[in-house]
Design a protein around this nucleic acid. Structure first.
Lengths: 79, 79
DNA sequence: CTGTGACTCATAGTCCGTC
DNA sequence: CGACGGACTATGAGTCACA
């Protein structure tokens, strides 16, 4: 599982949990609306700088946005 | 406190804890020798992709490298 | 409100050599 | 082994128009 997906998933989860639209989050984080969209669609591997901005705008820690889900991208074996 | 400093500090701490040189870590993470040096000197704001590579090479989670130190750049709140 | 292609600019990331 | 500068390439960062 790419780290981008982890970020995209967590970003969306936290954004929805905060009851914000992509536009609202983008506005709060001081970044472009379409950029947030791109991040949630794994178009980019964000730098830690925007990661920090996003986290602050969501009221969480940067590390929270990189927390991998136990069972989310679970791999059932090659068989 | 810049997020870069947090990364630089944690990166160095974990690298030393693992008993690795910058060269060794760079080799294990599959990234450039001088890049690790630059990261520890806050020259760049790494993307989450290299962050993940570094974390894996160190045997920790990407989120661990972004964990802020309580007491380092402590801010007493906006109030 | 959100996804997407296209585009420009900045910088992340590599390679090389030196101290 | 680690800091450092330069040149280069790949990709992230930021913005617009349209569906």
């Amino acid at each position: 599982m790419d780290i981008r997906e982890v970020l995209a998933t967590n970003l969306k989860r936290h954004r929805l949990a905060a009851g914000l639209s992509q536009e609202e989050l983008a506005h709060r984080a001081g970044i472009d609306r379409t950029y947030v969209s791109s991040l949630e669609r794994c178009v980019y591997a964000a730098s830690i700088e925007v990661l920090d901005q996003l986290a602050t705008a969501l009221g969480v820690e940067a590390a929270d946005l990189l927390q991998r889900e136990p069972g989310g991208g679970e791999n059932n074996g090659p068989a």
